[in-house]
Simulated scan of single mutants.
Amino acid sequence: MRAATDLTGTGLEAAWVDELVERTLTEDLTGGAPLPRQSDVAVGYDVTSAATVPGDQFGTADLVARADGVVAGLPVAARVFTRLAPGATLTAPAADGDRVRRGDVLLTVRGPVRALLAAERSALNIASRASGIATATRAWVDAVAGTGAVVLDTRKTTPGLRPLEKYAVRCGGGSNKRMGLYDVAMVKDNHVAAAGSVAAAVALVRERAPRVTVQVECDTVAQVGEALDAGADFLLLDNMTTDQLREAVALVGDLDVDLEATGGLTLEVARAVADTGVDYLSVGALTHSSPILDLALDLRTG
């Protein structure tokens, strides 16, 4: 069985995860001061556990779903526990991307009770946030199933958490559009205003970043034609009606140009939008507005 802390296949870099774990724990335990590497960090930091839990007490804690959903972030949460209890034993009955039901045990940790309780909130915050995004994403993926359309995220992420949140989207069955401003050129209205025209903006990007995919934002079908004439690779169709989307799809025809619908999308209209023939639906709400998945830690001593 794969170790509960194994990040293989997640696309998350171990160094970034360890830094996230450290930041999260210091926020909760020290107010930002560095954690010691070797000591019982619960003593003097988690004042409640230090006062109420004997230092030699061991226990087993289950990370449990309190609601139905899709789980994500378990290996990261597991690393929170092992940071404070390096000798803890962990088993993961669930895996990231699994649909889970209320009452399911997702992760079990055995170790010093002080350390388990000191790690509890940090681990829950990470896994609950990631699982909430994965759960919301799966609802969108289910809504467009069979249409061929792919659900995308956006750059509307929590500062400092983008790799985790975009990973959670993948756990939910969605896809990542771009990680930042550096990997796709997105020509928007302000860029057009600065460059003078869509054609000028696209030409400048081609000149200075020839290997980068160029996407152009379009608010009207007329702008779609302008972007195609300029040689865009990818069109962002912003706040268009389904009729306008179908017109845009027809304009593109057999050209090797992808179409992405965005703006004002809801689950109720997702399938109708996907049925227009667009390649992608991008949904900023996946990362900026998804509620957490309710998770809890149940402790057994002894």
Rank of each mutant, 00 (worst) to 15 (best):
A4C: 06
D6C: 00
T10N: 02
G11W: 12
L20G: 01
L20E: 03
V21F: 05
R23H: 12
T24R: 03
E27S: 09
T30D: 09
G32I: 03
L35Q: 08
Q38D: 07
D56E: 14
F58P: 06
G59Y: 13
D62N: 15
V70W: 02
G73D: 10
G73H: 08
A78S: 11
V80P: 06
T82W: 10
T91L: 02
A92R: 04
A94Q: 06
D98N: 08
R99A: 15
R99M: 04
R102P: 01
D104H: 14
V105T: 04
R110E: 09
L117S: 02
L117F: 06
A119M: 06
E120K: 13
R121Q: 10
L124D: 05
A130S: 03
A136G: 11
A143E: 12
T147H: 02
L152Y: 15
L152G: 09
T158F: 08
P163N: 07
L164K: 06
Y167E: 03
A168Q: 07
R170N: 00
R170I: 01
G173A: 11
G174C: 06
G174T: 04
S175N: 07
R178Y: 04
R178F: 08
Y182G: 05
A185H: 02
D189F: 11
N190W: 07
V192D: 04
V192N: 00
A193N: 02
G196E: 08
V198Q: 03
A200Y: 02
A201F: 02
V202S: 06
A203F: 05
V214F: 04
V216L: 10
E217F: 06
G231Q: 07
D233E: 09
L235R: 11
L235C: 07
L251H: 12
V252Q: 00
G253M: 11
D254A: 15
D254K: 15
D256G: 13
D258R: 14
G263I: 14
G264T: 05
D279P: 07
V283K: 01
H288K: 09
I292R: 09
L295N: 05
D298L: 10
L299H: 12
